[in-house]
Nucleic acid binder design. Sequence first.
DNA 1: TCAATTAGTCAAAAAAAAATGACTACATTA
DNA 2: TAATGTAGTCATTTTTTTTTGACTAATTGA
Lengths: 102, 102
Amino acid sequence: MMENKDAAECPAEAMLKTLSGKWKPQILRLAEKGAIRFNGVMKQLPDANKQSVSVALKELEEEGILSKTVISQKPLHIEYLLTEKGRGVIPLLLTLAELAQE
Amino acid sequence: MMENKDAAECPAEAMLKTLSGKWKPQILRLAEKGAIRFNGVMKQLPDANKQSVSVALKELEEEGILSKTVISQKPLHIEYLLTEKGRGVIPLLLTLAELAQE
DNA sequence: TCAATTAGTCAAAAAAAAATGACTACATTA
DNA sequence: TAATGTAGTCATTTTTTTTTGACTAATTGA
């Protein structure tokens, strides 16, 4: 009998963790409509705080769901866009939202 | 201009929270194959602890994803089954898992 | 020069989630 | 009588997540 350390490998769990962080679904919902920016998100989610939004954007970028682009440094302008993977996530969120309401 | 307290209502966020609790995806994966029982889950997920499994089963039941049935109290026998809603969640988890690997 | 806007970071505190170990309660088996 | 198996609960500790408030750094406008 061989001892196999299971449990660790549940790919769905990792993805769920990534998506379920605070403010992330709302941020993705904003991103669905077009490029988003840090301060824009802060204004549209008045109850969110800098740190959480900062962490959310960073993690979503690390997961390849958002891409970050520096448009210009003169009047500092940074944009986040949904990647292809990110666009693939949106319909899942919508389906989850529907299921939640049943 | 009227001040609207937004943010609270993101149905996807609630559902994501429910599904992303510790061990929940694994438990649902077991439930997909048939009725599950408390000690059975404990044996199949050796790294999980009673408390977490207990909380997971309770929350999944409260969300209407699992149904709980007492089969008999003589040799105490309680079963959890995926509800229709629960069965609706499974394909989403599989899709999330696929997306995670891209 | 002072204030505002851009996009954050940092350390610390507070809140929420998860883990640990002891315990309950009932019935069966040795 | 003691141990085993069922399905948990409870209080406490540990870990993780989220929030708070102060601070940075560059540029623009008054």
